[in-house]
Design a protein around this nucleic acid. Structure first.
Lengths: 216, 216
DNA sequence: ACAATATCAATATAAAAATACTGATAAAGT
DNA sequence: ACTTTATCAGTATTTTTATATTGATATTGT
């Protein structure tokens, strides 16, 4: 017997979802009810087929020829997929300016992430609040994560301390780490690390720019 | 006749370079002269073959069996490739907390990026300095970019204003844009856009975490 | 009712990236 | 000198991702 195989959503498709959601919300505000894959592709500078496949992978119903997909339904499906509705709690380690930026960024609420505590080793910061989030001594990382059952940790400390912090988070039962430090963390197999390395992005940018300049 | 074909460095390899550089510098500090691909692979949790290919793609000399590659030479080659030595000038638009984090981040100097001016529309910011960089009225973007021959623009404004800012940068002759706003910019073909979307990274993280949680 | 058309779905192909395999070689040990 | 071994380089395979092609179908206009 044939089983129903839920389409696998690839990592790259996942990365495109927030763009789709953003665009679809804009259409929704204009009271547009249905949209076609080619239309979205045009708006976001993507390939038409790619968009259609992404939609097919998340959509609970099929697209209709000549009309396309239901805007509202796509939004709902994507938001559910990404968990925008049931916020996950996270802790943040490091209270520097990047941490500030992250804690100040209101967008995360929408994205289903709620930062419940920030840690730092600098006693000057401890006890203060950043945008409503308390800064706590880094000694308490493991303990607090375990007690609060927090599964996401965000690391914004300097490279030299990132691995130490990472180990503490893992000891506290954290399962996923969003790492802004420019090093590759070593973690047990079952821990998920998402690296956010500005240097890496910049490398791509400046190399490509350099190639471009050679033509001038 | 056979021409020498310089190995093409793929985008993904490029993204790995900063990690290599960082690791190699650490080895250099320990006065280690040569290193093998498997060793680096182990330190960075990468595949051995992948590392060797990346090294082969940038290295000006070959690796030696049993010894590996010259640490110093690899660093030099990679730094030259990424332009860490001859800094490119860039401007930043948007003086919010993310801009603060970027302007405060000392690392960019090392990475060959020099931010020469910051722009904002908020008159409260204009005229102030952030970590030594002056904040200038956003009206002057095009003009100043053109006069200073700046080719890199960094966008940290809210999504709603990103496209406007982008157009101004392009009008000012900027060729590469580093976009932190969560939208896809539309630009002429010859303009390079590198998107840095926190929502996209978070989407990957939380989806994978959710799958993980289903097993518990 | 019928033809034209935009769009879809499914399959096929291509491109990019990661990983595996195989034989060669320089250094180290016997 | 010979053998062993770690590592390399090159080629092959696999996986992932993107794009192209083909035929089907719902809607619109005649």
């Amino acid at each position: 017997m044939d089983e129903y195989i839920k389409p696998v959503i690839t990592t790259q498709a996942l990365r495109r979802m927030p763009y789709y959601i953003q665009q679809l919300r804009m259409l929704q505000n204009e009271n547009i009810e249905t949209v076609s894959a080619p239309k979205i592709a045009e708006l976001l500078n993507l390939n038409e087929v790619q968009v259609r496949k992404d939609f097919a992978a998340v959509s609970s119903s099929k697209g209709k020829p000549k009309a396309g997909f239901s805007v509202t339904e796509l939004i709902t499906n994507m938001e559910n997929l990404l968990g925008y509705n049931n916020a996950e709690e996270a802790v943040l380690v490091g209270a520097g300016s990047l941490a500030h930026a992250i804690l100040t960024y209101e967008g995360f609420k929408t994205y289903g992430l709620k930062i419940v505590a920030a840690f730092d080793i600098n006693s000057a910061y401890i006890g203060t609040e950043i945008n409503g989030t308390k800064v706590i001594s880094a000694e308490k990382i493991s303990d607090l994560c375990r007690r609060m059952k927090v599964y996401i940790g965000i690391i914004t400390v300097p490279a030299s301390q990132a691995q130490i912090v990472c180990d503490q988070l893992v000891a506290g039962g954290v399962l996923a780490i969003w790492n802004f430090a420019p090093i590759r963390l070593s973690v047990p197999d079952h821990i998920l690390v998402q690296n956010e390395n500005l240097a890496a992005s910049l490398a791509v940018l400046s190399k490509h720019l350099k190639e471009k300049m050679n033509y001038l």
